[in-house]
Design a protein around this nucleic acid. Structure first.
Lengths: 100, 100
DNA sequence: TTGATAGGCAAGCTTGTAGTTGCCTATGCT
DNA sequence: AGCATAGGCAACTACAAGCTTGCCTATCAA
């Protein structure tokens, strides 16, 4: 559950993909591929990117919609909000808060 | 930089350690060990926990202070705030350079 | 129908990393 | 001094994860 989310974020290439989708949503696999190689000089195969997208989708960070032969990818930031709340929120049951 | 942070959070045992330090700060290595095995039924060696703490410290999530033969561990949530902001905020300055 | 484009599946290689075991240092108590 | 406690270091094992290659399916245009 949370495991998928944190593992998805652990890879720098996946974080770059999130950056790209954050900048322009609704990109196809090939569009993401070319941007990674052009803008970020990332030498990675199409299948590599596809696998990263699968991981991001399993984590709920990316949602997809199919239209004809195109598959569009959209960023979903909802899961990210839960991350911060786990430790940042001064929990009622926990004794101390450490803001240092 | 950010790489250390995300990789530190990728492991479920390390996240549990953060939970423990969030509940009670200033714990020693042995204290964390016994809590992991008691409360969380985590069968892990002392050295295993020690290595996890080193990763968390490298990520800036845990700070340590030494007193005599004791080494106390404190949670530092500051790095967590930057995570959410990376994608949650539709940033005005435009997109990246890559911070990973 | 043929060819080109967009994407998927699965096996295999390789590196990274969690975990262990064994031994070593430092502090404190009696 | 002697012993127990708290922690550190290094080598080794085992499994997970990133990435590639090769082949397959689906959609659309000429």
């Amino acid at each position: 559950m949370a495991d998928d989310l944190f593992k998805a974020l652990a890879d720098p290439t996946r974080r770059t993909i999130l950056d790209e989708l954050s900048e322009k949503s609704g990109q196809t696999l090939f569009e993401i591929c070319s941007r990674l190689s052009m803008k970020h000089r990332l030498g990675i195969s199409r299948q590599g990117v596809s696998q990263h997208l699968a991981v991001l989708e399993a984590a709920g960070l990316v949602q997809t919609r199919r239209e004809g032969r195109y598959k569009f990818h959209d960023l979903n930031t909802a899961p990210l909000r839960r991350i911060a709340e786990r430790w940042l929120v001064p929990d009622s049951s926990g004794p101390e808060e450490n803001t240092s």
